[in-house]
Amino acid sequence: MTEEGSGKEQSVEMELGEAAVIKLPRSTSLARADGLLVRLRPFYEGVIHFALFICASISVLVTVGIVIILLYESVQFFFDVSIIEFLTGTRWTPLLKPQHFGILPLMCGTMLVAAGSAIVAVPIGLGTAIYLSEYASPRFRDIVKPFLEILAGIPSVVYGYLAIVTVSPIIRYLFPSAGVFNAASACIVVGIMILPMIISLSEDILQSVPLSLRGAAFALGANKFEVTVRVVVPAALSGIIASFLLAISRAIGETMAVTLAAGATPKLTLNPLESIQTMTAYIVQVSQGDTPTGTVEYRTIFAVGLMLFITTMVMNVIAQYILSRVGEQYE
């Protein structure tokens, strides 16, 4: 059989005027037999498979690591500080005597910044998303989008700088009662930071509303405004809310800008002109100092980190859930 095959081949080669014929290593058997490389193949394919599996598993290990470390240190923290005091106390002074471990001021500061940045970012972000998705010409979109990408790429510490050097003086000019460090300047810069996120996510959602829905509304004699506000936005509403959630979760986890702009005085206040402290800023404050390992003060960062992790995780999971349902809706 093999001889017959090669005989045929040679005749063809002669027709083509070829001199030598390179033969592929070839077996007439189907079983794995020939060559060391071939015999080793299942082995090295298996090794590669395993290595890649390890790469993918690392992400799970990271999550497990975060949870274990935060829980482990927090549990030790709660041996020293009652969990009730931690969750309900209204004073947070772990680094001063007398020590108080009530996280509410930090939570309040974090929520103040999150809410304030949402007030800044949501209207502008939604308006921009609607304009880009529904009104803008493709050319205009192509021009604006890179700017938004740049805005998204500016590091957080730069926003912190701008809050102190640019935004804070303006706020103090408008409201003389405001301090150098105030929540309002943090709100504004964090709002700008999360803008690109709201815009790109909401725009994707708006674009995913089927054209047929718009067409149907236009066919009923609705004008552009009515189609957008009464049909497109309501259809995309859950997705838009998910994008807000993701952006606000980002604002909660935002660190450098808030640390620089909002100050370091944990306070239970809703006045944006006062200096406050967020959970993230507190972690930075402790990390910068020389707090000895194993002390209660040191463990506070894990307890605060745990609160931060839980808050952002819950918001992210809800947003992901909404988004996954939106994805199914139009499939």
Partner: peptide
């Protein structure tokens, strides 16, 4: 794993700092 990765992308970077500190 997929869900986990999407969620990890949303974890604040300072939390990774805490993990890095401990680990």
């Amino acid at each position: 794993i997929q869900l986990n990765i999407s969620n990890l992308a949303g974890v604040p970077s300072i939390v990774y700092g805490i993990l890095g500190l401990a680990l």
